[in-house]
Design a protein around this nucleic acid. Structure first.
Lengths: 200, 200
DNA sequence: ATAAAATATGAGTGAGCACTCACTCAGGAG
DNA sequence: CTCCTGAGTGAGTGCTCACTCATATTTTAT
């Protein structure tokens, strides 16, 4: 029996251990026995800090959603759209990579669980999309972007970035083919900007 | 006890029932009891036709992968690239939608199972990517596309299409916001083509 | 018609797993 | 020091679920 750390600390340790195990095996295949082993505590200890195994998942999901978006979609006089786009994409990519294990669990469970699916759509997809849409519309009003449907156009951009995250972080595709982040960002930006500005 | 159908027919019935249940709940949360109920047979009958529950999954996965790709990346004198692109995207979108429940299961399991992950990458991602890459390179050689990295560029296109499939088929996003397929294809094509051709 | 083979059934089985609880003990208060 | 609180422990519990098998029914062969 060790009491070297505070209850809050222990709680965090268990949560992190659960995150690692879930990331490896997925929620259903993870056992509380393995989480306990990973955290270096007895199985019973988990249930002193969390009501159920589910509670671990819910807590983990909540922790992803508190991440702040530092780079924002914001027009400013002396910054070209290209730079704004690059900042935002770089920021989002970094955020995705840092939280990849948790996002993966979140996404995987959202595929089959109503409650998590709603939260995923609200707090990940829509959160990312609406700000971008507003920016897109403003630029269209300014005449600098073509009059394509902004909701569709914004999702195209999300898809471009998303597929690389899914490839390297969710599917471990780096083993087969590794992409350089900056090269990816360069390509996305050049294709997308030319695409939404139109020819000439 | 009914014997109205042949063994092969019964097998297919069970497989389809399993597909429906897996699509609703995910593989782990689906029980053989529920699959049996869905198929209208006794639980034991499942195990006369399939060794294990896993075997159902493997068989389902295999059945997605036999789908032929009817529209192909193929240059022809009198067809503009835009039309080829539209045909291929339309074909892939239709294919994804038809097989969406199975693809969802396949993808969800691939996130955490080594063996399925490898198959998913090989037989879904790479199968789609390599033909497109070859086409892209040819067009670049012809001078009709900019010299961006073809592997990245092709994945951008896949991401654009993919996000709409994930949105509507995997996450049930239509409940929140429904996109018209043709509008989506139009937008993707116009953004992408202008993007990879470059300005002017 | 009868035997043999194939197929269907569902109660039963055992393994695995989330969760409990009676007990242990570390650390703090007085 | 003594007592008390609450975190830690892990064997135990009850339930779920994939899979089995003895038995029943249908089909096929002779």
């Amino acid at each position: 029996m060790k009491r070297s750390v505070s209850a809050a600390e222990r709680r965090r340790e268990i949560l992190q251990a659960a995150g690692r195990v879930f990331a490896r095996k997925g929620f259903e295949r993870s056992t509380t026995a393995e989480i306990a082993r990973e955290a270096g505590v007895a199985e019973g200890t988990i249930f002193r800090h969390f009501e159920t195994k589910q509670a671990l998942l819910i807590d983990l999901v909540a922790s992803v959603l508190t991440e702040p978006l530092t780079a924002v979609w914001k027009r400013s006089e002396n910054r070209p759209v290209e730079e704004i786009l690059r900042d935002v994409l770089r920021n989002r990519l970094a955020l995705f990579r840092e939280n990849a294990p948790l996002l993966k669990i979140f996404f995987a469970e959202a595929l089959f669980r109503e409650d998590l699916r709603d939260r995923f759509i609200d707090e990940v997809v829509l959160r990312a999309a609406t700000a971008a849409e507003a920016f897109f519309r403003e630029e269209q009003a300014r005449g600098s972007l073509r009059p394509v449907n902004p909701q569709i156009a914004v999702r195209c951009l999300m898809g471009m970035l998303g597929i690389f995250v899914v490839w390297s972080e969710f599917l471990g595709g780096d083993k087969y083919l590794r992409f350089d982040d900056e090269a990816v960002l360069d390509t996305i930006i050049s294709i997308y900007l030319d695409g939404v500005r139109g020819r000439g």
